[in-house]
């Protein structure tokens, strides 16, 4: 299997959160995104900085929640994929 690009990893992470009704526990994300703990922390930091996700505590459990910006990013990636396919890039 080919190595995923940074963009693919970030897209997979955001899609995993979205598919879990917009919020996910960090341990579940680690499993869903198929990443090492170190790598996931690194990418999560970036997503938090870019305000594509936010952290929230619900009943003493930490959750990662996708923001509107994160959902918009996923939508744009979907459009770019279609643009790529239509032009055979």
């Amino acid at each position: 299997m080919a190595r995923r690009s940074k963009l693919e990893i970030i897209t997979d992470m955001l899609a995993a959160i979205r598919d879990k009704r917009g919020r996910i526990k960090p341990t579940h994300l680690l499993y869903k995104a198929n990443l090492s703990h170190k790598k996931m922390t690194e990418y999560l930091e970036e997503l938090l900085t870019k305000e594509m996700v936010k952290e929230e505590e619900v009943e003493s459990y930490k959750y990662i929640i996708i923001t509107d910006k994160g959902l918009g990013f996923l939508q744009e990636i979907k459009r770019i994929e279609e643009f790529t396919e239509s032009f055979g890039l």
Binding site: E82, F83, E85, S86, F87, G88
Partner: peptide, 9 residues
């Protein structure tokens, strides 16, 4: 691809 967009192009 067989998509509308690829046919358009």
């Amino acid at each position: 691809r067989k998509t509308t967009t690829s046919k358009c192009v």
